[in-house]
């Protein structure tokens, strides 16, 4: 098994912290992940809203770009993961669509055999392929005392995941118990963050975001772990406006799970992209892990 990496557009700019931490963690774990050359946008939800064939073809280009050396394509972003996976499935199961996508790809000199590339989410790869033993072995800074609220959101666990329960996923919960964190089992961990609702109906989007923050706060979480740029953006960037709108005082840092995994593996916080989030995470983490962290850096 060799892994190709599809960062996705968000990780290039808005979610650079995710990209930085993914690369740092993968390196620390001694794992190979090769960025797919010249990948293009997965189209988010937007192409599918307009033209299914264009959507499928645009996405299929990425699958076609995976060379013979690689058989796994790893995506950290929820939407990219779903779109890549859905496209592979559509091509495999819908001969009419496949015939047309084949023609479109051919116009660019490419071809793709459905099923050749296994589209995987990063969490699945870390959890299943690298696994508990290897990760536990590399923990130098246990997250003891830190209450983390794993947030799965929607598109990773539904509908095509096959690696966790779509209603009540547990893999990220489990992984953080390996790291020694106190994992908060709160009821909204796979509820919707609102996605692009912020651009359609802002007030309703605020309400969706508030529900997540409220539940995590009710369960006394120190921070929320997420694994999708959209979720991070919604809960982090809009947290201030949610507070203004509802007159609440949430101050919950929203970090990528790879950032915290990186901390546990003893990677320098700067290399993990901390500081880019609007609700600062570092002070909270330091306060909780104090003493221990000092000891570890020595």
């Amino acid at each position: 098994m060799k892994y190709a990496y599809y960062p996705g557009c968000s990780l290039e700019s808005g979610s650079a912290a995710y990209d930085m931490s993914v690369r740092a963690v993968i390196e620390q774990l001694g794992f190979g992940l090769d960025e797919l050359d010249d990948w293009n946008c997965c189209g988010a939800t937007e192409y599918f809203s307009q033209n299914e064939l264009v959507a499928t073809s645009v996405i299929a280009r990425n699958l076609a770009l995976v060379d013979d050396q690689h058989d796994q394509l790893v995506a950290p972003c929820a939407a990219c993961f779903l779109n890549l996976k859905k496209t592979d499935k559509l091509m495999a199961e819908q001969p009419k669509i496949r015939a047309k996508v084949d023609q479109a790809l051919a116009a660019g000199g490419l071809r793709y055999q459905p099923g050749r590339v296994h589209v995987r989410h990063l969490l699945d790869v870390l959890y299943t392929d690298i696994g508990e033993e290897a990760i536990r072995a590399k923990v130098v800074q246990p997250l003891t005392g830190l209450r983390v609220a794993p947030y799965y959101g929607c598109q990773i666990v539904r509908p095509l995941n096959g690696f966790d329960n779509p209603e009540y996923p547990m893999k990220l919960d489990e992984m953080f118990t390996w790291l020694g964190a106190e994992v908060v089992d709160y009821p909204v961990k796979a509820h919707c963050c609102g996605g692009h609702m912020t651009q359609i109906s802002e007030e309703h989007a605020f309400e969706l975001i508030r529900r997540l923050l409220q539940s995590a706060a009710d369960y006394r979480a120190d921070l929320i772990l997420c694994m999708c740029p959209m979720c991070q953006l919604n809960m982090d960037m809009y947290q201030g406006r949610v507070n203004n709108f509802f007159n609440t005082k949430f101050k919950l840092p929203i970090v990528y799970f790879t950032q915290m995994l990186g901390v546990a593996l003893g990677i320098d916080m700067k290399k993990l992209g901390f500081g880019k989030e609007l609700v600062a995470a570092e002070p909270v983490i330091r306060a909780k892990l104090e003493g221990q962290m000092a000891a570890a850096t020595k």
């Binding site: 290039e12 010249d38 293009n40 033209n51 064939l53 499928t56 280009r61 023609q103 479109a104 660019g108």
Partner: peptide
């Protein structure tokens, strides 16, 4: 975190050919 321009892929032409054909 706010980029002003997107990155451009190398083979834009290829992508556009695919999109045109699909359309």
């Amino acid at each position: 975190r706010l980029a002003l321009t997107p990155t451009k892929i190398r083979q834009v032409k290829q992508l556009q050919a695919i999109i045109d054909k699909a359309r």
